[in-house]
């Protein structure tokens, strides 16, 4: 570590102050507010609040509906993370085999990333549109009467498909650059030592890709848990009814549609704890197995 000398002991604090201010305003303060209001039953019209202790939490956790949504969220997150990472990796490995350092192709492939995520999301959802969606028409060929927005499983399928579709380019780019950073001579040495390409992938490529994969795992889980809000919102069009939604969407529904600020706060605190636990778990148990160069 390099030690820097400052003329005044307060100077370093001054330098990190802007960063701390942003974190404070946009993270700590809302978190404290959420924790605080999760113990109260708020009047929807702002005429005061009643302290109810942990009953907001008890209500949320005890509700069968909340449990069902939590189960769907777990399945949804697992599927989106697994599929977007898996497909992204498959495409990257295949592209890498063809590229071999040809930067023109690489640039062309990476351009996908330049499409704004909302545009990509919107395009994805149009594929599932009831009237003009080509995927709906395609499914009809096989006798599948897809009713996105009406049928629970059809909606879930579309949600997962669009969420995965949106995330693949991101994973693709990271994995591709991870693959290209594996030294050519190491791959060649492996090619001489091991004939089976599949085996080489598992014993050589994947372990060397682990730092990238670990980073992407965290990013993808966070994406599936939180950033898919937009996809779900367009898909269920603000009226969840009995369509599948994730916990984040439930927080929004209860707080801003149901005007139950206390209950909504309690749910977001629960989510915060889940993320906290997940992060600790990932760094403690997964990162240990990751080899950094």
């Amino acid at each position: 570590m390099k030690r820097v000398q400052f003329s005044s002991p307060f100077l370093p604090y001054l330098f990190i102050a802007p960063q701390m201010a942003i974190i404070f305003v946009f993270f700590y303060w809302p978190s404290v507010q959420a924790i605080q209001s999760s113990f109260f039953l708020e009047d929807p019209f702002g005429f005061g609040s009643t302290f109810v202790g942990l009953s907001n939490y008890a209500d949320a956790l005890g509700s069968a509906q909340y449990q069902a949504i939590a189960r769907f969220t777990v399945v949804f997150t697992a599927l989106v993370t697994f599929l977007s990472l898996g497909i992204g990796m498959l495409l990257a490995v295949k592209a890498d085999a063809v590229l071999k350092g040809s930067s023109t192709y690489k640039t062309l492939l990476i351009w996908v990333y330049a499409i704004a995520p909302p545009v990509a999301g919107l395009m994805g959802m149009m594929f599932f549109d009831q009237h003009i969606g080509p995927l709906v028409k395609f499914a009809a060929l096989f006798g599948w009467d897809m009713k996105v927005g009406l049928n629970y499983y059809d909606t879930a399928f579309a949600m997962i498909a669009v969420s995965v579709w949106k995330q693949i380019p991101y994973n693709f780019i990271f994995i591709l650059s991870g693959l290209q950073s594996i030294p050519v001579s190491v791959r060649e040495a492996a090619a001489i030592d091991c004939r089976s390409g599949v085996r080489r992938f598992w014993t050589m490529t994947l372990p060397l890709l682990a730092p990238t994969a670990f980073f992407l795992l965290i990013i993808n889980m966070t994406y599936a848990l939180f950033d898919t809000f937009g996809v779900i919102d367009v898909m269920v069009k603000d009226k969840a009814a009995n369509n599948p939604i994730t916990l984040v969407y439930k927080v929004y529904m209860d707080g801003f549609r149901g005007n139950d600020l206390g209950g909504s706060s309690a749910q977001s605190v629960i989510l915060m704890i889940v993320v906290f636990v997940l992060t600790i778990f990932q760094f403690r148990f997964i990162e240990r197995r990751v080899h950094y160069n």
Binding site: S185, V186, E188, A191, I192, P207, L208
Partner: peptide, 20 residues
């Protein structure tokens, strides 16, 4: 013939050891 089946071993300039 595939490199792995040629019954040769190669030593590279930058060693090419498997870092993990």
């Amino acid at each position: 013939v595939d490199p792995a089946d040629r019954d040769i071993a190669m030593v590279f300039q930058n060693y090419a050891l498997y870092p993990h």
